[in-house]
Every structure is written in C-alpha cells, then in structure tokens.
Design a protein around this nucleic acid. Structure first.
Lengths: 149, 149
DNA sequence: TATTGTTATACTCTATAACTATA
DNA sequence: TATAGTTATAGAGTATAACAATA
C-alpha cells in the first residue's frame, strides 16, 4: 500500500480520536437502532414507520416516494405491506391516474402511539441534561438549515 | 420519561416544532446519505465501506460480523462481494475453522482514500463554526459514553 | 406526449436454520 | 459438544426499465 493513513492521525486504525463526522455517524447509528427497536415493537420496519408518521392525511403515492426519497416503484410494495398490516389503504383520487394512501383507523391509532413514544426522547438523548439538549437542538437546526431552497 | 417536548401536541402533523429526537434523526439521515454518496463514488455500499474501514489488519470473519452488528451468515456474501471487487481476500488462520479477512493492496489504498475523505468532514458538519463543532463533539461524546461496560 | 402507478427484474442487507469442518 | 464459516431460504429496501391507464 503505497502510504496510508497518516492524515487521519492514527497509524492505521480509527482508535485514538474519532473525527466529528465519525462521532456524528456513531450517534446516528444509535438513533437509528433506537428508532428501529421502538417501531419494531409495533410490528413496523423503519421505512414503514416513516410512511405511517407522514400520513397525516390521504397523500398521493408519489408524495410518499419523494418524502422517503426513494423511487416511486418501491411505494407499490410498501403500500401492499401497509395494507396487509391493516394500517393503510389505497383510495382513488379525482385525477384517476393518482392513488392516495390513507391510514385506516387502526393506522391512525398506531400513528398516535408512535408519535407519543418518539416524542418522549430516545435513550441516546436521555443522557444529556436539559441545557445540553437545548444546545444540541440549536446545533442540529443549524445543520439542518436548507442551504438551497 | 417525560421530558418529551409536547406529546406531539399538534393535531395531526409534525409541522410546528420537531422534537429533539426528530431533529437528531434528520441529521442522522443526512449523515447517512452523505456517507453513502461518498463511499458510492468508490464503488462501495455503506456496509462494504464500514468493513473496509475496520480492516486495519487481517481479522476473523466473525469479528467483522460483530463489528457490523449483523449475523455471521451475512459476512459470507459480504466477503464474496469484497473479493469480487478485488479489495479484500480470505486468508487461512492457525485455527483452521477460522478464516481471516484481509485487505488487498488495492483495498488498503482505497481504505486510505476513504479515511482521508471522511476525515475532512461532511457537508453536514461543515455548516458549523469551529466552536460549534467543538460543542457538538462534546455533546456527541456524552451521548456515546457507554452506559454499561 | 407526459404522468402515475404497476410489473418485472436484480442487487444488497438482514435473519433463521441446517450443514461442514474443525476443535 | 461446541465453534466458525457456509449454504439455503426468506423478506425488506433500493434501483432501472417497460408497460397500462389516464391526462
């Protein structure tokens, strides 16, 4: 290997001082795992849960795709699974090309539960004090500020 | 429990003030996407990249599995793909049940490139000042502090 | 012609269970 | 008996391309 890793500071591993990005990614993994476990308790996968959480009202399947940042073709199977679970259903639209996805009563109840649980904070953020959480929120908001748009 | 922002309060959407967890998750998604794009430029999937980055030296396949927090059976296919890409190879061990996974020369070079790129910081963290990055690092470290162990 | 959703196909990640070869 | 890796199988998320119905 011609040379290697010196700019990362460590002589071959990530050991001593992880970079900010590495730590951010590690926290992201924890948050993801937390989310997966939380929604898994309700029988949903993370993607299914994200769909349920966005379904405030009946929404075109194409909107679901763009919200999930995935190709529209995926939403067909996703909708199939949500229908099989009894939490959502397809309903026709005025534009007859469009199908709307809407939560069933059971889906709405589930969405409420999920919302309450997730709002309570994860095991990750629980390790911070109230002040620190405020600080963190400000930093996250800055990172989330849309650079374009 | 209970320090939740406001049990979602909103009559049906996430609109007004996302909770801390929601913002953390959003940043996590950005970081994940950044990582996927960065490693994708080198022809790797995120999981493949994580494997390459951990392969400081020859390591038992079982160790790869535990590092990736996945079942050992998955590492077979992962190793196959890394071998097909020419970045890693299986080598025998003294315990003849064990196979070690080791980077090829090409894999080591790739690992070096990845390490340098990732150390440079992501588009997400670039939106913060140096002071803010220090602050964020401290908060992240606190969240990462192992509660058990 | 352009758009929406579907289907067909394919790849990766993930898990469980059964199997092998070692120990 | 127990462990490491493989194989078989399955389901979910992702993508592209071709297609039908509708606009």
């Amino acid at each position: 290997m011609g040379h290697g890793d010196e700019d990362t500071g460590c002589g071959g591993g990530w050991a001593p001082q992880p970079t900010l990005s590495q730590r951010l990614f590690a926290v992201a993994e924890l948050a993801r795992a937390d989310f997966a476990v939380a929604v898994g308790r309700h029988g949903l996968t993370p993607v299914q849960a994200r769909a349920v959480l966005m379904l405030d009202e009946a929404v075109p399947m194409s909107s679901v795709a763009s919200h999930l940042a995935c190709d529209a073709s995926n939403v067909t199977g996703l909708a199939d699974r949500l229908e099989a679970l009894g939490v959502a259903e397809r309903v026709p639209s005025s534009d007859r090309r469009v199908k709307l996805l809407r939560l069933t009563d059971r889906g709405s109840a589930l969405r409420g539960e999920l919302g309450r649980e997730l709002a309570q904070g994860s095991a990750v953020t629980d390790r911070l004090t109230a002040d620190e959480r405020t600080q963190l929120a400000a930093l996250l908001d800055k990172m989330l500020a849309t650079p374009d748009a």
